[in-house]
Design a protein around this nucleic acid. Structure first.
Length: 260
DNA sequence: ATGGCTGCTTTGAGCAGA
């Protein structure tokens, strides 16, 4: 039994819907978590996705943020849907979680933080603290758990095209990296690093400066799997192809394959 | 490189992203 779970920050689902439909057709994942849909719930394109064979859970807001979780309509309906971090008041739509069979899938759009001296960075740290507490609870409740999304954290210098330029900048600060390590110490594993990967592998490239052509990016989109799932992981890949399309998202999809 | 590019906004030049 194979299960494939993917994540993609689409930077506006309105603009990227045709690319998402293409990607679903090409890869047919068992789950695709989307970030930065930038749509209020009444505008979510559930009909177009249903025509493509995908059921959706969605949680959005105007202009910013917004997340969704897509699953094949041929699969059993998802259960226990949770929106945002329980107990953490948040006006921003950043998290959607659901149970698929016996696997808990949590899709998240972590705060960016903007700059270390901004209020947004303090919000990011508070959000991360709340996430740690919630993930500890979720891991108690679900042996098979996957946390995916745009983490807005480059875990190590090898995840950064120019570590010197990015040193202590937002996405690369010791505080953010410590939070990433704390997630791992809860019993999660960075699926991408379970395998030998090409050096200079990124999941995001700035729209500016021909960054994609020059392969100047960051690896900030991640898939973490629980201890119980780690032995089942047979692959984890970043799909750079959509970044080459006309009007691309600045992020690439990341996908994990589980074999049980 | 105090930038660039893209998407959004009760359509404007400003915000946010990363």
């Amino acid at each position: 039994m194979t299960m494939r779970i993917a994540t993609w920050n689409v930077n506006s689902l309105s603009v990227r819907l045709p690319q998402v439909l293409d990607w679903l057709g090409a890869h047919q994942p068992d789950a695709l978590c989307l970030q930065e849909t930038k749509l209020t719930d009444d505008k979510f394109p559930h009909s177009a996705l249903a025509e493509a064979g995908y059921a959706a859970q969605w949680f959005g807001q105007k202009t910013y943020n917004g997340v969704a979780l897509l699953t094949p309509m041929s699969a059993a309906p998802v259960e226990a849907v949770v929106k945002n971090i329980p107990g953490f008041f948040d006006e921003q739509a950043r998290v959607i979680a659901a149970t698929l069979g016996d696997t808990r899938v949590i899709g998240a759009y972590f705060p960016n933080g903007q700059s270390v001296d901004s209020d947004k960075f303090q919000y990011k740290l508070a959000w991360l603290e709340a996430l740690q507490t919630w993930m500890a609870d979720e891991l108690q409740a679900h042996r098979r758990l996957v946390l995916v999304g745009d983490f807005n954290i480059a875990p190590e210098d090898r995840d950064v095209h120019d570590p010197a330029a990015w040193a202590d900048q937002v996405l690369c600060t010791p505080q953010e990296r410590a939070h990433f390590q704390r997630l791992l110490s809860l019993g999660l594993h960075d699926a991408y690093r379970l395998f030998e990967q090409a050096p200079r592998s990124w999941s995001w490239w700035d729209y500016r400066n021909l960054a994609f052509r020059k392969n100047q990016g960051l690896r900030i989109d991640h898939i973490l799997v629980s201890d119980a799932l780690k032995p089942a992981v047979s692959a984890c890949t970043i799909d750079k192809l959509p970044r080459k399309h006309e009007r691309p998202s600045d992020h690439a999809p990341v996908m994990v394959t589980l074999n049980d």
